[in-house]
């Protein structure tokens, strides 16, 4: 069976969920061969094997942390040469897309970004994309070279599918470009203890209606009662009420959870672009005319300062 390269996104050996989803999709096309780079690369093998990786190619070198993107492209290209895969799948993070793009140029192949689904087809893998702020769904494929496809989080379910997961050391020689962009300092994000925004099953977001940073704990309390991640509109972020890493929308994160709750958000097209593919959508807004209500499965027209605390309290009560 044809092999499919899967680029592994991990933090010091802990595999992030979108990579496991990629393994589910990769198995529809062929036999997954994972590529894990950097600190803790070999520690990813057990998890990857559980989810279907036949092989795990690993390599660690200081270059991965000290320089931007290109060392990883060099390594992925080395894996590509070693395996001759039927397709290369990469998680659709900002960095993932850049790695995939540069690989595509090097191997003279087409690239598709932000797939939300992937099937095998007669002429190679067929990717589903959601475009124009999710107003359209398209089906695309790569028509030249080996398909390089980046896939968004939540595109598939994580499935257990035990495979060999044999670890092999990847041989990488870095290109001249590898050391072009130096990372001179790195400040890791502080963990909030809440789920990762793009991976969360439930997201609760606050917008300009929240009225100030001092009121965001109301949104956070609702999120915590549901085990949800917290999001924010750009208006709330620009006002300095919530960090930019939590922004949902075109220039923030794109989320596709089972449940999205928008509080004090009007539903501008750029916000919708980042949340419209959520399965169930709920909104609380005091303006009955707000465009967000066009999207909702359930909407409450009311003051969020009344509705949200009551909702949180009722959820806590039902949990018992």
């Amino acid at each position: 069976m044809a092999e499919v390269l899967v680029y592994v996104d991990h933090v010091d050996g802990a595999v992030r969920k979108p990579t496991l989803e990629l393994l589910t999709l990769a198995r529809r096309i062929g036999e997954p061969v994972a590529v894990a780079l950097g600190n803790g690369a070999a520690d990813t093998a057990a998890t990857l094997a559980e989810h279907g990786a036949a092989k795990v190619l690993t390599h660690d070198a200081p270059e991965y942390a000290d320089y931007l993107v290109v060392p990883k492209v060099d390594a992925l290209q080395a894996a590509y040469k070693a395996v001759s895969p039927a397709a290369v799948l990469v998680p659709s993070s900002a960095e993932g897309k850049e790695i995939a793009a540069r690989l595509a140029v090097r191997i003279d192949s087409g690239i598709i970004t932000d797939a939300i689904d992937l099937e095998s087809g007669d002429e190679g893998p067929v990717a589903t994309q959601s475009v124009f702020a999710a107003a359209f769904t398209t089906k695309s494929r790569v028509s030249k070279g080996t398909p390089v496809i980046t896939v968004k989080p939540n595109a598939a379910a994580v499935e257990a599918a035990p495979a060999a997961g044999a670890v092999e050391a990847l041989e990488v020689s870095f290109s001249e470009q590898a050391t072009g962009t130096k990372v001179t300092a790195r400040t890791p994000r502080e963990s909030t203890g809440r789920p990762e925004l793009t991976e969360a099953a439930i997201v609760v977001s606050g917008g300009r209606g929240v009225g100030g940073a001092e009121n965001f704990p109301i949104v956070e309390a609702l999120a915590d009662s549901l085990g949800a991640a917290v999001g924010a509109s750009r208006a709330a972020v620009d006002a300095g009420w919530y960090p930019h890493t939590n922004q949902v929308g075109q220039t923030g994160k794109s989320v596709s959870p089972q449940l999205y709750i928008a509080t004090g958000i009007s539903g501008a097209i750029q916000h919708r672009a980042g949340m419209q593919t959520s399965k169930t959508i709920v909104a609380i807004n005091k303006d009955a005319e707000a465009p967000i209500f066009d999207l909702v499965d359930y909407g409450v027209v009311g003051d969020l300062f009344e509705v949200v605390p009551q909702l949180t309290e009722e959820i806590e009560a039902r949990k018992g």
């Binding site: 595509a104 192949s109 087409g110 690239i111 598709i112 067929v126 959601s130 475009v131 999710a134 107003a135 359209f136 769904t137 398209t138 089906k139 695309s140 494929r141 790569v142 028509s143 030249k144 070279g145 419209q276 959508i281 609380i284 009955a288 209500f293 066009d294 999207l295 909702v296 499965d297 359930y298 909407g299 409450v300 027209v301 009311g302 003051d303 009344e306 509705v307 009551q310 909702l311």
Partner: peptide, 25 residues
């Protein structure tokens, strides 16, 4: 290097339930 084989307009969401908060929202 890529080909788009089809584009479909996303079906309009079926109208959801919208309630006005009268104290029990």
């Amino acid at each position: 290097w890529t080909a788009v084989d089809g584009a479909t307009e996303r079906p309009a969401r079926t109208a959801g339930t919208i309630v006005k908060d009268e104290g029990e929202g």
